[in-house]
Nucleic acid binder design. Structure first.
Lengths: 156, 156
DNA sequence: GGTGAAAACTAGTCGGC
DNA sequence: GCCGACTAGTTTTCACC
């Protein structure tokens, strides 16, 4: 189960770009019958390699044009704190990513908001739920790249 | 085109979680006929609000278990440099996000690699393509949250 | 893995309200 | 803007090579 062959990788490469592709066109691209493709996809769904098929939306039209990264330093290392922090960030839909970083004292949050005022609302809402000693925010001026595609083709 | 009504938002909320949902079940959830749902989705695709439907994969099974954030300081503000930087990062599939941050001297890169050695390869490959004066890397120890779902339901 | 061919479901288009 | 019906296409599951 550890190894994924080249045909599977090419199927995944296609599906990552467009989940709505028909089995027929997929088969043509990878050089397999529709049926063989379907069996491989099913197997990869069952193994969990294929996690889900989702729809991506335009953040600007949703009035979420500002991406912000929040860097959080804490001196509270108790599991209670992490638990509360996890729960709080999970429940805030503007927060898209929460990462515990190396060093064990830094957390990074990736969030999308409308503007600075909206960020302040998010910040206030967060510190009302979890005690945070040190929070600094960096705002994204330009999104040069943003993708959900993972590198699946075998690298040299 | 500026406003999105509540039914559209509920459709988007469902599609963000599962793009493979049938029009029938979607209609049941939002209280509309399959046909009305279809027309709304089509309109949102045409307006660009719905960008694409993609497949999400398991990074761990693809041997991409390590997420790294690279913070880059540069003193080269020439448009040539940014152009080369953009082109280089665009062509590197391990790099999932590239952001120009506030201050105009910081760039942030979000990437997925197998391990530390793989990160070093990425780093070496990047600096071979673009001159980078100051690069620091932070590694993700724990992914507490990671989602592609944007907040579509109207906030209070 | 390939083929062919059913059954079930879905998308996309129509006229009508 | 919504609904029901219809058609055409697709997925999904067979049995068999």
């Amino acid at each position: 189960m550890g190894s994924i062959d080249d045909i599977d990788r090419r199927i995944l490469a296609e599906l990552q770009r467009d989940a709505g592709k028909s089995l027929e066109s997929l088969g043509e691209v990878v050089g397999l019958s529709r049926n063989a493709c379907w069996r491989r996809i099913k197997a990869m769904e069952d193994s969990g390699l294929i996690r889900s098929r989702v729809t991506l939306l335009d953040p600007v039209q949703l009035n979420l044009g500002l991406t912000v990264f929040m860097q959080i330093r804490t001196n509270a290392h108790a599991p209670d704190w992490l638990n509360a922090f996890s729960k709080a960030t999970m429940g805030m839909p503007e927060i898209l990513g929460v990462y515990r970083m190396t060093g064990d004292l830094d957390y990074l949050i990736r969030a999308r908001v409308a503007d600075m005022a909206d960020y302040d609302r998010l910040y206030q809402a967060l510190i009302r739920k979890v005690p945070l000693s040190d929070v600094s925010a960096s705002f994204v001026m330009e999104e040069i790249k943003e993708t959900t595609e993972l590198p699946v083709l075998r690298r040299i």
